[in-house]
Simulated assay, not measured.
Amino acid sequence: MMRPSLNDLSAFMAVATHRSFRRAADELGTAPSTLSHTVRALEERLGVRLLNRTTRSVSPTEAGAALLGRLHGVMNSLDEALDATAAFRGSIAGRVRVNASRVIVGYLVREILPLMAERFPNVKLDLVAEGRLIDIVSAGFDAGVRLMETIPKDMIAVSFGKPVSFQCVASPTYLEQAGEPQLPDDLVRHRCIGHRLPSGKLYRWEFQRAGQEVVVETDGAVVLDDEDLMVEAAIKGLGIAYVVNWVAECPIAAGQLKPVLSSWMHGPERMAVYYPGHRAVPPALRAFLDTVKSAPDQ
């Protein structure tokens, strides 16, 4: 049997991942009819049907799903092997467009960009702060960075950096005046600083202890859509804020804020860079991935 070409396998991966000849053709810059012919020829060469096709849908067969799963690892290994030659070609250059939440963009600026500037000075990072979880492929991004549990299952995810957790914080002055809440239900008697999500909804505060889950829908005395500003409001004594631990670290260390309800907070989560697995990973993106993987995790 003649071995399929990389173009044939890449065409199949794109169609099987998108489950659409049209979307795969848009990504690869070719016609859907060309992709259909390529995949059909691949099936004939292998002697097995890889895709189920109807007028409305495309989905991998059992054989197609098995092949797709193995090809992801093979293609990634091939990309890494090719990228390893970059040192012999000269310095790595290019642009990487990355989508992330504003808080994570702040982390990248503080922790990752200095390392990138030192190791890969010719790689340009285009960071876009986006509160909504978007389709990075259709929006033209090379990668996204989110909490691991929010990343779409069809993406390759690489965890990195310090674990992320949430904290309830308030100023010592506020707590002296209002008292310290001992239970999440006590928050109804406190001024709370609400977090407005990009959807327009208020973020619900989630707590957990000994298997007990508690969700508090705060009617914030102050409502903001930026966690740094939420911390500033808490420092000014405007109430209790529920924020990512990073943004509160320095004010807590300086005595400007004090954690409350610590025993009720969820355990830490991991951040991850994610990107579509059916694409070849460009050297500039590989440089970014290698840098974030080297970030300290403590």
Rank of each mutant, 00 (worst) to 15 (best):
E176L: 03
P32K: 10
K293L: 02
Y275W: 14
G94E: 09
F21H: 14
P114K: 12
I136P: 01
Q212C: 09
P163G: 06
E43G: 02
P282F: 01
M2L: 13
L46I: 00
V223W: 02
I193G: 01
G161E: 03
C168N: 13
A253C: 03
M1I: 00
H278V: 00
A233S: 12
E43D: 07
T55S: 14
V223R: 12
C168Q: 13
L35P: 13
G179A: 10
A87P: 00
D154L: 04
A14N: 01
V222A: 03
Y203C: 04
P251E: 02
A63T: 05
R45G: 10
L50K: 06
A66W: 01
P268I: 15
P152K: 14
L115S: 11
L238N: 08
S171K: 01
R95D: 12
Q167K: 10
G267L: 13
G237H: 09
G277R: 00
A210R: 11
T173C: 02
T150N: 15
G277D: 01
L35T: 10
L28W: 01
T34C: 07
L289S: 02
E176H: 09
E269C: 15
R49A: 06
T54E: 01
A31L: 04
P184E: 11
A65S: 09
V215Y: 03
E217A: 12
S159Y: 05
L108P: 08
S33P: 00
A143W: 00
L6R: 12
P152H: 15
L71D: 06
M271D: 12
S59W: 13
V260Y: 07
L229S: 07
L175M: 06
R270Q: 15
G267Y: 11
M13T: 03
S20A: 05
T291R: 08
I252E: 07
S77F: 05
H195V: 08
Y275D: 12
E111Q: 04
A280V: 07
F21K: 13
Q212R: 15
G200N: 12
A117Q: 13
R132K: 14
T55N: 12
G161S: 10
K236M: 10
R196F: 03
I151P: 12
Y174N: 06
T291A: 09
F288R: 01
E227R: 09
R89K: 13
A143L: 03
F88W: 08
R56T: 15
F288E: 04
I235T: 08
L183S: 04
R196A: 09
K236I: 00
